[in-house]
């Protein structure tokens, strides 16, 4: 193991990690927004839109991210939309993540039994109050484990971004291997940096789950 090589190239990885985190976080944020909208459309059975979101969810969940990225990266310029790779990465991640988040939120909403809603209505609450005070708090806590799993899954999926010439962690590792043949060192750095990004997310997720469980749910 060439420690000098490792220390020397940490800044390069730092820069790549920052790119991964930036795209990952923005992708997750947009996934959440898309997921919320789609879950609401599905839950309230909005006509027409419900069909469209249904198609989107199946399409997005059943195709690999790499192929989605190719479509966005090589396809959009063909219809006259020029995009930079970073935006493509965010869009691809949001396209994939939106459907996973939608399913997580929808299953949370549907896990709250209709009779809970009736019990709120029979206390004189209107539909908005019923959603706000009774359904949403329960749905949110039920969604948390799936939500956290999705965040981690999406951050891991960022490893295919090098395919659209983004200089992320994976790209940097492959580049260094190609240049110096320091395979072990480059891969060790790659693994360590991914762990640095993902372990804190995992730990926070577990803490959040535990907190919510002790707050009186899961009966």
């Amino acid at each position: 193991m060439d420690w000098e090589f490792i220390v020397q190239h940490i800044p390069l990885y730092q820069e790549a990690a920052w790119l991964t985190v930036r795209i990952g976080l923005l992708g997750v944020v947009f996934s959440i927004l898309i997921g919320l909208v789609c879950a609401a459309i599905q839950y309230f059975r909005v006509p027409v839109l419900r069909r469209i979101t249904g198609i989107y969810i199946e399409l997005s969940r059943n195709t690999p991210l790499l192929i989605q990225l190719f479509f966005i990266y090589y396809g959009l310029p063909k219809i006259g939309i020029q995009t930079d790779p970073e935006l493509c990465g965010i869009a691809g991640l949001a396209f994939l993540g939106g459907s996973y988040m939608a399913e997580a939120f929808r299953s949370g909403l549907e896990a709250v039994s209709p009779i809970q809603m009736e019990s709120a209505l029979s206390l004189g609450m209107n539909r908005r109050q019923t959603m706000g005070y009774v359904v949403l708090p329960q749905a949110a806590s039920i969604s948390v484990p799936a939500f956290i799993a999705n965040v981690i899954f999406l951050l891991k999926e960022t490893s295919v971004f090098s395919a659209i010439s983004l200089m992320d962690l994976m790209f940097t590792a492959k580049d260094l291997i190609g240049l110096y043949y320091k395979t072990t060192e480059s891969l060790v750095l790659l693994v360590v940096f991914y762990l640095l990004i993902l372990l804190p997310v995992s730990v926070c997720g577990t803490l959040l789950e535990r907190r919510l469980r002790y707050a009186g749910f899961g009966s």
Binding site: I115, Q116, E118, S119, A120, S122, L123, G124, Y133, V134, P137, Q138, S141, A215, G216, F217, G218, S219
Partner: peptide, 15 residues
């Protein structure tokens, strides 16, 4: 509001 209802399955709000 004027009609109180109690259900078989209690339906307390678990949160």
């Amino acid at each position: 509001e004027k009609i109180g209802m109690v259900f078989q399955s209690y339906e307390l709000f678990p949160h």
